[in-house]
């Protein structure tokens, strides 16, 4: 799963959001690294809806303008959980290896041969 998709699903895991809310939430969650534009966002949302990962929650009219809210569907929650678990295992493996490397590479202050 690519990062923008992961961030969209993560943003929707909190609460249903409309397009603008999703863009700002993804930017906030990623510390500004992932900056979605509307053309890209709605293309991704269409595919996520087609795939049954995201669903339209409701539509509202605010100041004469239509707002469509999206929510994480059951399939999307399962996929996000599986992807998060996969990433967690990768992080754990990398962290363990880095720790081993640090210990091995640390200078020995005592106990060497005379």
């Amino acid at each position: 799963m690519r990062e923008p998709t992961f961030m969209i699903l993560t943003a929707l895991a909190g609460e249903p959001l409309h397009g603008y809310g999703l863009i700002t939430e993804v930017a906030r969650l990623s510390d500004g690294r992932v900056s979605l534009r509307p053309g890209t966002l709605y293309g991704a949302l269409d595919r996520l809806v087609d795939a049954g990962l995201v669903a339209v929650e409701r539509e509202e009219v605010v100041d004469g303008r239509l707002r469509r809210y999206y929510r994480l569907a059951e399939g999307g929650a399962d996929l996000l959980a599986a992807e998060t678990e996969r990433m967690r295992r990768n992080v754990a493996a990398a962290t363990a290896r880095l720790k081993t490397r640090t210990h091995r590479g640390a200078p020995r202050l005592s106990g060497g041969t005379a």
Binding site: G19, Y20, I23, R37, P38, G39, T40, L41, Y42, G43, R65, L66, R67, R68
Partner: peptide
Amino acid sequence: TEIVDTYLALATPDRRWPSPADVVDLAGGG
């Protein structure tokens, strides 16, 4: 209208024209 409304919500008050990046984004989306 949903796409345009989102662009308008993201635009700064002084913006008058879509940016080149917006044009590329819309062209890619289309």
